[in-house]
Design a protein around this nucleic acid. Structure first.
Lengths: 195, 195
DNA sequence: AGGATTACTGACCGTTCGGTCAGTCATGCA
DNA sequence: TGCATGACTGACCGAACGGTCAGTAATCCT
């Protein structure tokens, strides 16, 4: 880790600003958060924020891109491994990203498509979901996942559960990312695998 | 069903207003929805809304109470049945309420506690979660649920999955409430039960 | 016909919102 | 010492917000 050689008057960087902004967006909701509220939490005036960023929605865009980039990095290239192994890897990887980038992913999962920025994020989420659903379908085809429950339902329940982690998981609460992923995979994949 | 004997000038009732309001709140978010937008969707002016309701937040309160009343009605009295059967009944009942009152429950699950009304709804949700967590603990105690995964984690995964239904389930899409509950219980309880 | 009932309009108000701009302030480097 | 660099201030703007109020419109009941 090289020390970030900062010149000029000390203050917030774009990164530190983004961390605080995302925290407040989650706490109060993006729309319900005013730039003045944000400024107060940062200990600066509203104008200072516009020194780092062009608009309120650009803050949101930076946050959503960070979450999405993390999630897409988890998708495996189609290789020779059984689909069920690749599926488990995606689930474990997603849990990892979710824990590592918790605030950003949390924000992503709350986006409703109001602005073009939000609509674009929703589109990328749908793309991610599609890849996972295809993977579950591959599992059923190779016989590793029970066929008596609809694959589309299975994949939605699967990632519905993973995504619901943002509603309650807090790091440093005694439950590590590894134990979390283990518990989740144990519970879910037992009911998933073909008898 | 008795015909609702309406007198006076025809127009929206509180119920029909609430249905539209909740739909728009879900679509755009509560905070992002202005009373003027709402009025436009209803085909009336903003003032007309205030004939039925005292404030914007009262619309939210009516919607949240409806969802919460439905959920609490599902909790069983402590009886002689095994805890695992009561747990399954709660899960199936919750899925039923979620399907029957989908927009209202969806809205409830997105509340963040900004206003006193939202804070009160959050408190009632926590109360519901507490009862369910206790029920899962009873299951572990009676030996019907595997003890190697933490009960708190189990109950959170369980209701995380149920609640995630609001993110994608749409009635009339070929998947009925019964089939939905069956698929969910099959998938989840298989991984839950003690070996 | 006429009153009771219910739903609604249109103009308006004070406040808050996201955003702008010209200028100031504190630091590292030469 | 002084200058480039980067962070920040304070006053301000037009638009949109939630909400108010006095009056009007359409229906049912007697």
């Amino acid at each position: 880790m090289t020390a970030p050689v900062r010149r000029g008057r000390p203050g917030h960087s774009l990164d530190s600003l983004l961390d605080v902004a995302v925290a407040v967006f989650i706490e109060r909701g993006y729309e319900a958060t005013s730039m003045d509220t944000l400024a107060e939490r940062l200990g600066v005036t509203k104008s200072a924020i516009y020194h780092h960023v062009r608009s309120k929605v650009e803050l949101l865009e930076l946050a959503l891109d960070r979450a999405l980039d993390g999630l897409f990095a988890v998708l495996p290239a189609a290789d020779e491994r059984p689909a069920i192994d690749r599926l488990e890897a995606v689930v474990r990887g997603s849990v990892g990203v979710l824990v590592a980038e918790l605030p950003f992913v949390t924000l992503l999962l709350r986006v409703r498509g109001n602005s073009p920025v939000e609509a674009h994020a929703l589109a990328r989420r749908r793309e991610f979901d599609r890849v996972v659903t295809d993977l579950v379908r591959d599992c059923v085809a190779e016989g590793s996942v029970r066929p008596d429950v609809d694959p589309a339902l299975t994949s939605r329940l699967l990632f519905g559960t993973v995504n619901s982690l943002t509603e309650w998981y807090r790091p440093g609460g005694g439950l590590g990312a590894q134990a979390l992923a283990d518990g989740l995979v144990t519970t879910l994949f037992a009911g998933l695998r073909a008898p």
